[in-house]
Nucleic acid binder design. Sequence first.
RNA 1: GGGGCGUUAGCUCAGCUGGUAGAGCAGCGGACUUUUAAUCCGUUUGUCGUGGGUUCGAUCCCCGCACGCCCUACCA
Length: 500
Amino acid sequence: MAQVDENHVIAERREKLKAIRAQGVAFPNDFKPDALAANIHADHGDAENEVFEAKAVNVKVAGRMMLKRVMGKASFATIQDGSGANAGHRLQLFISRDNIGEEAYEAFKHWDLGDIIGATGYLFKTKTGELSVKVTALRLLTKSLRPLPEKFHGLTDQEVKYRQRYVDLIVNEETRATFVVRSKVVSAIRNFMIQNEFLEVETPMLHPIPGGASAKPFMTHHNALDMQMFMRIAPELYLKRLVVGGFERVFEMNRNFRNEGLSVRHNPEFTMMEFYAAYTDYHWLMDFTEQCIRAAAIVARGTATLTYDGKVVDLSKPFERLTIVGAIQKYAPQYTLAQLNDVAFLRAEIMKHGTKPFDHAGLGALQLALFEETAEAQLWQPTYIIDYPVEVSPLARASDKNPEITERFELFITGREMANGFSELNDAEDQAARFTSQMKAKEAGDVEAMYYDADFIRALEYGMPPTGGCGIGIDRLVMLITDSPSIRDVILFPHMRPEA
RNA sequence: GGGGCGUUAGCUCAGCUGGUAGAGCAGCGGACUUUUAAUCCGUUUGUCGUGGGUUCGAUCCCCGCACGCCCUACCA
């Protein structure tokens, strides 16, 4: 790779590294820290100097030098280690010529912000009361060749934050905090599932037939088998095969891939937690999903009452449940019930909003389209929308009372879809018929219609117990819990176009 | 795909509808033994995103392109 972005600062540091190499091992790996900044603050932050004078507390610490103040024969430096997401992972060092010797002190004066250093010394408090290490020995562990962003303003360029996340993480506390919260959300959900006796499983990412959702897949090719394969768009059909096999409660939290547009809510690969529980239905799923999300918020943030984009989102109360028509009536009350059941009216009304419904769209699909145009974005507080039409739900169990609708829900929070679940279709013959109708739609030009998965039908023919299943969008949930405006803010390495 | 905004030093940003660029930080040299974005003195650094056009002259005006952000569309 050409070093297109070399500059005089980097050149200066390369010269320094050259001199260090000439003196011996430039990248030593024999310094073993025995304490972390956050723990030191926690354990000794309240102690006064008399305590340290009575009994010296010796520490070996290491980290990246973030601040450096040289005042003649004595200096302060601030290092940052991996011990926390807040200012607690920083620690101040007091370095003086008299304590570490002339030669070491001269060397230190030429070290740079960003260098990784190791310090041995003992704790004390400065005049202003800051817990610090009086350094008795100091070593350069890794020379940093590239200058860090400006120490006060940090890194604000959105593009560089995404492309060079490592720099973003070094200098922006909020970024570190976001991904620590993400990790807590993921582990909270995993714990919640395991506590509820779900088995965590891993199903294929490479599918011979893409299934489980209506989406455009990424295509790839397996050389040895000389066959086309698809990156999975959803794990659904494999997880249900496991329910057939007798794993009656399974979940998988992993990546799905969809070859579609990017936006603040869409990344081509995203994380979904999908779960199936035999002998449950969509009512149970809604109760359970609600508890799971609430538990994740409480573990990650300590509360189920969140703020998103300056507005309260209350996850602590039972989530509202509305039918599609009910939601339109609540959020777009200008429509009469008669209009909402009038196919011609709905079609015209949707066209007015700039969307052209499919020619074959039935009443339910049209009601859904109008809901999406008028009500969806207003669902700020957690709301379940229920009773989705059969024609857009090829894997969901139809209602026993009304064969046109399914026992399905989607969960909306802050106007965004967070989860989608339903009582599963376990009638193999009905499922085969639904696949056949999807194939017809595909032949008619619907690129997102599903493929016919004969092995999945065969599995259902062995008998799948009545089951409920649901998928929760982890990235969007983390956006909500971390008050992040873009999905890219909660994905460590979001997809970008190649650099120019 | 459509629209808006942006791209100037390593970073954060100024730059008067036109005369080929500045500040702070970082860097380099110096002073300084309790600083907190340390301070003080001196000092280096730019294909002004890119390619055309207009002009005596373009960072600035016009057009194309690239990349980014936002909105919109698509996408359950």
